[in-house]
Design a binder for these strands. Structure first.
Lengths: 131, 131, 131, 131
DNA sequence: GTGGTCTAGACCACG
DNA sequence: GTGGTCTAGACCACC
């Protein structure tokens, strides 16, 4: 998985890291059960502080995307069940994106095409099909 | 337009304000040409500092959503043309949302249903359709 | 002379007005001795407050670009002598523009070409040649 | 780099600051990659509020002249590519300056001499020439 | 009336 | 250490 961190972005590095790992899992670049690099390794590779990596990992763990085991390190968890909280967050963010898109002149069909095209690049659910 | 600001959120107040105004315009609660409350009025109503409101307004102006006129205060601008930069931002955010949704077990049809349902609550384009 | 005022610009209207009149005189659209519209006329044409027009005219008068006579109204003055103060202001503004251009990758030849091309659209000096 | 802020000028302090930093970079007093003083340091040195400095830095960042890194503070960015928008702004400002110069009796050769002399004090491009 | 600028000082998030 | 946010209140420019 390739990371691209923008040090001068206003998005905190640990959030960028968290987002890219989530996207990586979603796209199937990281499959359920696979290991993530150790905190130190990741920090060294990305040229950032290990506390920053640790923070990203802790968030991913709290969100249920990964498991952290003292012996095996961090591993990807299989797909979870939707929670009401997540749906609320999803709808709220989609509402904002929809409003922005609408105000930028994007029409319904085009918006849905984009949503569809992008969702179709996700493959994580496969990890459930093969038990 | 009803505002609900969460003072203890880690999302800055001016960003919350900006987001809610964008959503409000998108939903048609504020139509093209309509005035927003003056900086001071909005600050008083929301119980926040006027510089915070000002910052939100400046961002909305820079993004092309509103105009700020020395005489009339802030007014909503009509729908604009999509830019390549916006599409990139949109796709990047949708990619993250898709990944999260996918990992939370939401399937393609359901995701698209949500996208469609939410986009359909937007009405801003009407300001162009009606002559 | 065509005026284009941007009400939502951060440049005050009276400054925009002053600038456009100066440019108009420089380009020869208004020649020495010619009359400017009356304050009221200009205000009505431009859809702005007459105090705003008055302010612009007073500045142009103070700068020596026009004369204001109670009977004849405002008229364009002929070319004046350079003052040290003006040269300082000119050099200071050119320094900033040069720095910006340089940092945007514009090279010396190109910069001078632009300066030359634009200066050549000015014709006001002619009003001196014909005595 | 020496700053001279005029507190009684009608040009906002943050604009004066921004202009002087741009000029400083253009003249090569600040080279690409070099650090600017921290917001607080600059504020203390200049005897102004840190939010004022922050505002100037944010503008410079938005204009592409500097980068702001959470770790290193603000650093000078290398020379960029010209954009159409910048050329328009440059030509519009040069048109006004040309008109003023012309009306103050400055002739073409003299104007170009001044432009050339001033542009030649800029050295920022060097950061690209030297490998 | 409007927005824009500036201050002094507090508090927080990031790394 | 760094920048970012927010406040309360003052003052100014514009129209």
């Amino acid at each position: 998985m390739i990371l691209s961190l923008d040090m001068s972005s206003d998005v905190p590095i640990y959030v960028q890291l968290r987002n890219q790992i989530v996207t990586g899992i979603g796209k199937g670049e990281l499959k359920a059960g696979e290991s993530l690099p150790s905190v130190r390794q990741m920090a060294q590779d990305a040229g950032i502080n290990s506390m920053t990596v640790n923070k990203a990992y802790q968030i991913l763990k709290a969100e249920g995307f990964i498991e952290i085991d003292r012996r095996k390190g961090a591993t990807v968890r299989p797909v979870q069940q939707t929670t009401g909280i997540f749906r609320e967050k999803l709808e709220s963010e989609l509402e904002l994106l929809s409003a922005e898109a609408c105000l930028k002149g994007i029409r319904r069909e085009e918006f849905l095409d984009i949503c569809d095209r992008i969702f179709c690049t996700m493959h994580a659910a496969e990890s459930e099909v093969t038990p």
